[in-house]
Design a protein around this nucleic acid. Structure first.
Length: 413
RNA sequence: GCGGUCGUAGCGUAGUCCGGUUAACGCGCCUCCCUGUCACGGAGGAGACCGUGGGUUCAAAUCCCAUCGACCGCGCCA
């Protein structure tokens, strides 16, 4: 029995060829004029869903060497004859524009190369979970509703919450830290995060999947980087095993680590114009990644020791009084995929740093309280898996690595 | 938000610079023909008021103004 979509129909006067597509691939069905199903076969339309029963026969004439001679063909769902976007776009030039494809995402995803994106994602995540499992991480599920913004610096979505205002989480930052205060020691979270930024780029969307992890008793952000390297390597190992045809190289320990100050020096020597003193522009991120690839033959690089002006109030300083923090961003092939840091778990310093940032301590009360009754020193990071997948598969846009992208302009389907 | 590019049949494009009669091509769709296709082939056909509004002109897809939308880059952010 074969069930699937009609990918191709070749109707001749006395013989019909049907190519059926399903998750296992393509199968040819041959219907001769004397077959009782001949009229049904002739009446099919592209992308209709059918079920065929019959005998599989070996033949050199069929693509793949096998074909079905059906005794019964059922039309489970007939597709309207004219598709709004082509599913098979071998003929007639270039691919349909992305916005239109996203309007008809369920047709777009019928293309095996699009479905592959999400199979790769699944395997990649499996690899990360293998690491988390091996290292004894606990998975927790944070809420998306918050009474106060989670203070990553990004704008938040405000939603009505009965007689109050609520905010959609920009990250599970506060809640994963709370898990450390709860004694879990190692936690990870997988879920949607929301950013109300009017960004028009190939790497920003308003809702995306975040992978977050937090680890207790770290000595510095170096420990957090070491842990993330383990997760990434485990992810790539899983991919290399499941998709050998992608010829992926598993990244090697240790990933290059460059401080922001050094990075700026390198960029200057490369003649790349510096925009901001304490941050990297997209152009600088690409340039430093190229440099690292050339010098160290590595696709990853940690940019470390951010200036306090570019660090969150909860990032621990390098040492007390330092204007550098224990924060690092991970760049993968020129794009930022992680921000990580050791957190400040000492209440007095935390409050001091929040005040320095001009923040109101009142809405932070619940958060700061996490650290009042004993909390291990800890650190962690947030990862954008869609950006990983985008670079792994060399996709032109994160939206392609997002099942149903949500951006400034798109809220459908 | 700023800058750039682009809106022409269901899809992808040409035509726009240099205005001129039925807006072209490929795919898809419809009808007919074809016993082994595999980008099947052959014959015929339908389908576009050229994003929208205004202007210039004897004449506008084409020139001018406005407007809407989309994408890319930057900014913001991750």
């Amino acid at each position: 029995m074969i069930q699937g979509f009609v990918q191709a129909l070749r109707v001749q006067s006395k013989i019909v060829f049907i190519i059926v597509r399903n998750m296992r691939g393509l199968t040819q069905i041959v219907v001769m004029a004397e077959n009782s199903e001949f009229e049904i076969a002739k009446s099919l339309t592209l992308e209709s869903v059918i079920r065929a029963r019959g005998e599989m026969k070996d033949t050199s004439q069929a693509p793949g060497g096998k074909e079905m001679h059906p005794t019964k063909i059922e039309i489970l769902s007939k597709a309207e004859p004219e598709l709004p976007i082509p599913v098979v776009s071998i003929k007639g030039g270039e691919e349909t524009d992305a916005p239109l494809r996203f309007d008809y995402r369920w047709l777009d995803l019928r293309k095996p190369e699009k479905a592959l994106i999400f199979k790769v994602w699944t395997e990649f995540e499996k690899g990360w979970r293998k690491y988390w499992d091996k290292e004894g991480f606990t998975q927790l599920y944070p809420p998306a509703f918050m009474s106060t913004p989670s203070e990553t610096g990004a704008d938040v979505f405000e939603v009505n919450y009965f007689d109050k205002k609520a905010y959609l989480a920009q990250s599970p930052q506060f809640y994963k830290q709370m898990a450390i205060a709860s004694g879990f020691e190692k936690v990870f979270m997988v879920g949607p995060v929301f950013r109300a930024e009017q960004s028009f780029t190939t790497r920003h969307v308003t809702e995306f999947t975040g992978w977050d992890f937090e680890i207790a008793y770290v000595n510095s952000h170096e420990d957090v980087m070491n842990a993330e390297e383990g997760m990434i390597i485990s992810g790539f190992e899983q991919l290399a095993k499941s998709f050998p045809e992608l010829n992926l190289e598993v990244p090697k320990k240790s990933f290059p680590r460059i401080t922001m100050v050094e990075a700026k020096k390198i960029l200057k020597s490369l003649g790349v114009e510096s925009g901001e003193e304490h941050d990297l522009s997209p152009e600088e991120e690409r340039a430093i990644s190229e440099y690292v690839k050339k010098e160290f033959n590595h696709d990853f690089v940690f940019i470390t020791e951010y200036h306090k002006s570019k660090s969150a109030f909860y990032h621990m300083r390098l040492e007390e009084g330092s204007d550098r923090s224990r924060r690092a961003d991970l760049l993968y092939k020129g794009i930022e995929v992680t921000t990580l840091a050791q957190r400040e778990h000492r209440v007095e310093i935390l409050e001091k740093q929040a005040k320095e940032k001009g923040m109101n301590l009142k809405p932070l009360k619940d958060y700061v309280n996490f650290f009042r009754y004993g909390c291990p020193p800890h650190g962690g990071g947030g990862v954008g898996p869609a950006r990983f997948i985008m670079r792994i598969l060399d996709l032109p846009n994160v939206r392609e690595a997002t099942y149903l992208p949500r951006d400034v302009k798109r809220l459908n389907p």
